[in-house]
Design a protein around this nucleic acid. Structure first.
Lengths: 136, 136
DNA sequence: ATAATTCCTCTAGCAGCTAGAGGTTCAAGA
DNA sequence: TCTTGAACCTCTAGCTGCTAGAGGAATTAT
């Protein structure tokens, strides 16, 4: 049995964030000490690790809730978890594509050696969408 | 002189968003009709177009505020604007790199044909960080 | 003149936390 | 055992960049 601070250190998830996850229903309400402080065991640690790892992979809290549910019913079809992951992968790919477009555009815009704002390509490009390579 | 709705249609920025920009100090307080409704002219249109375009390129409102300031002082050095754009370009690149890592990891995880959650690689991988290719 | 549309302000909500106030409990050293 | 200081508690508010809705006034079209 260990405290929330200790759980925080072991998982790298900040203390207020742990409490927030509990409030959001991602973590079950923790047991309490006589003085009303949260106490965790190996189970809580595993669950929080799962959450943290999922967050690092960019899953939303809603998705994680779903994944946690699934993980506790070993007999349900794997396809459900797969779907969540696949949808997320799609999202990530879309984001990458968008950011790459941005990168190109920003690179192009930034190539400006003017001395004053009056001639600055950055400002000019922002003011006039017509100067863009592609629409975004 | 045109209404906020008309400005909205011309720029593609939603009405409440325009008001929000005004509140945030990105747009000067608009002139008003006798009945207290906002009226805009070409200037307002240009400024809002600048903002919208900058947002599409992913600049934060704070950055845009800076860029707008700069754009109104044609004699200041272009370097200032350049810095903002370059910093943002860096951010975008960092984001792309992170997302690519995520993409790889998600792709790897999703390659799972198990029938049940019990054997599902998605869940397993999320539960055990040690199964990851790289740290993230 | 009337009805439909647009506009006004104000408040609250979204995600996913983070920070602070004001107060209690715990653990370690004297 | 007592005391101190760190860690804990709950609650509220704030962050970004909007978006939605209530309740009411102005404008525009017929």
């Amino acid at each position: 049995m260990f405290s929330i601070g200790s759980l925080s250190k072991r998982t790298g998830v900040k203390v207020p964030t742990i409490r927030y996850y509990e409030q959001m229903g991602l973590l079950a309400e923790a047991e309490r000490s006589r003085g009303n402080q949260r106490r965790y065991d190996k189970d809580g640690l595993n669950r929080l690790s799962f959450i943290r790892h999922s967050r690092q992979l960019g899953f939303s809290l809603a998705d994680i809730k779903g994944l946690l549910m699934l993980s506790q019913h070993p007999d349900t079809p794997c396809a459900d978890a797969h779907d969540i992951a696949a949808r997320h992968l799609d999202d990530v790919r879309v984001k990458i594509a968008k950011l790459r477009k941005l990168e190109r555009e920003l690179k192009r815009i930034s190539a400006c050696n003017a001395a004053h704002i009056a001639d600055c390509k950055v400002i000019e490009s922002l003011a006039d969408h017509g100067l863009c390579e592609a629409e975004h």
